[in-house]
Simulated assay, not measured.
Amino acid sequence: MIAIKLAYKNLVGAGLRTWLNVSVLSFAFVLMIFYNGMIEGWNRQARNDTQDWEIGQGQYWEPSFDRYDPYTYQDAHQVISEPIIQQIKKGLLTPILLVQANMYPQGRMQSVLLKGVDPKQNILKLPTSDLRFSSNETCAIIGKRLADENKLSVGDKVLVRWRDKNGMFDAIEIKIASIFKTDVPSVENGNMYLNIEVLQKMTGMTNEASILVAGKDSKLYDITNWDFKTPDFLLTDFDAMIQSKKAGGIIMSGLLLIIALLAIFDTQVLSIFRRQKEIGTYIAMGMTRSQVVGIFTVEGGAHSILAALVGAIYGIPLFIWLNKVGIPMAANSQDAGITIADTIYPYYSLDLIISSLLLVIISATIVSYMPARKIAKLKPTEALKGKIQ
């Protein structure tokens, strides 16, 4: 209790020096929470968007399918069995047929992936219902990015050439039924969505599919001749990127924290040097050396408590405001192929706040204890004379 009272008195007496240290330390504390909260908010939004638009609760792949090897697409399809058809009718699964093709907008050639989807499906957010009410024309829906890159609008027709089940080339004009926008670039880039029955007929792959997407209520279990891929597996690349971003944030926050801790360390060294007679008086009055060391350690560690309080004063309103309005991202941020919303809403968990607070308090206490250890070696007579070596 004595150590706390003396520490408080000395901190107040230090005046501006104390508040400069507290300000830098509080800024490091708030920045750590802000950056990690932003990354976690981005992670949650991206994972939810990817599951809603592309992977559902997991996917069943035809065994030879490899999403990183386009050469496997030609043969990566098989007949949908009767038990799977029953699951599809219940809305628990939705099939997707993948076929590589080329389209020729304005006389140019561009590779495109034809994806046959069920117009009645409700598992993915794709506006597949726009494929229901097509006339005798073959219709497709595409993403805004593909439409902008090729200057396509709703109602436009584009020539598409593909290879059927037997390897024979065929071509047809496809009408753009609608254009959608999503935060998941892999859903838009280079993909053209058709009614799966139409695509099956075009390729001769009757009642076949390449992928089965599982819905929220699906009972995930092994299906014969299909390889199940969990959402964690499908999001491996994204998770690796998030971890790299977190590592970068740790380095940035660490550097700022080190600067703040260095200021506290210098302050403690200066304080011990200037208060030599005071230290000698404490020892001469009967205080043990460990008690004197405790006073200076508590005094230095108190900077972190004050920093947390000061950080809360301006940090809490800032975090509440950011959580309400979000953090706008650059308009072209999705062009890099990264799933990122136009506005990110940070997520501040209790674990994040507590861990950041403990890190700051423990670090400040350790840094304060390091120069205070020298007090344990003092002789009271030398300290009273102000002769600390």
Rank of each mutant, 00 (worst) to 15 (best):
A307R: 05
K9N: 05
I388M: 11
N189T: 15
V184R: 01
G315P: 09
S271P: 01
D66E: 05
A284G: 02
V112F: 12
I362G: 01
A214N: 06
R289M: 13
K157Q: 11
G254Q: 05
A140K: 14
T206Q: 03
D164I: 15
K385F: 07
G155P: 10
W321N: 05
V198Q: 07
F169A: 08
I258P: 10
Y347G: 02
I172M: 07
G311W: 11
I279R: 01
Q87D: 15
L261W: 04
I85W: 10
L262K: 07
L6Y: 10
T224N: 14
A177L: 04
M205D: 05
L6Q: 04
N102E: 15
A302V: 11
T128M: 07
L255P: 02
M168H: 05
N43A: 00
N43E: 05
G15E: 13
Q57M: 12
N195Y: 06
L318G: 00
I33M: 05
N191F: 12
I84F: 11
G15K: 03
G204N: 07
R67S: 10
G41K: 03
L11K: 03
I259L: 12
P83V: 13
V160M: 09
S81R: 13
L20P: 03
I196T: 06
V158N: 00
I259H: 06
S363M: 04
D237N: 01
G13T: 13
L212F: 12
T339G: 00
A171D: 15
S129Q: 04
L31N: 08
S363R: 02
I295N: 04
F65E: 09
K379A: 00
D156M: 03
I320T: 10
D118T: 14
D75A: 04
I176F: 04
E62A: 05
T203E: 03
D156K: 07
D342G: 10
R47A: 07
K216Y: 08
Y282A: 12
R17E: 12
L234S: 09
I251L: 13
Q51Y: 10
N21P: 09
K89C: 15
M109T: 14
G91H: 09
I272N: 04
K90T: 11
D237C: 03
Y345E: 03
D75M: 09
P83W: 09
E197C: 00
Q78M: 11
N195C: 01
K246L: 12
L357Y: 11
I340T: 06
K181P: 00
G294Q: 14
C139N: 15
T230Q: 02
L350S: 11
P95H: 10
G326F: 10
A331F: 12
F180Q: 00
V99H: 11
H77S: 15
R17G: 00
I55L: 01
A177W: 13
G15C: 06
L257F: 07
S64H: 06
S153V: 09
L11F: 13
N36V: 13
G13C: 09
G315N: 09
A330Q: 08
F233C: 00
K377C: 12
F34P: 02
K246V: 14
K144N: 03
T224L: 00
Q100T: 02
I361Y: 05
M285C: 06
M1E: 13
V367R: 04
K324F: 07
S153G: 08
L25E: 03
K157M: 12
I388A: 11
I305S: 01
R108Q: 12
N10M: 13
I295V: 15
P346R: 04
L124P: 02
V24Y: 03
L220M: 14
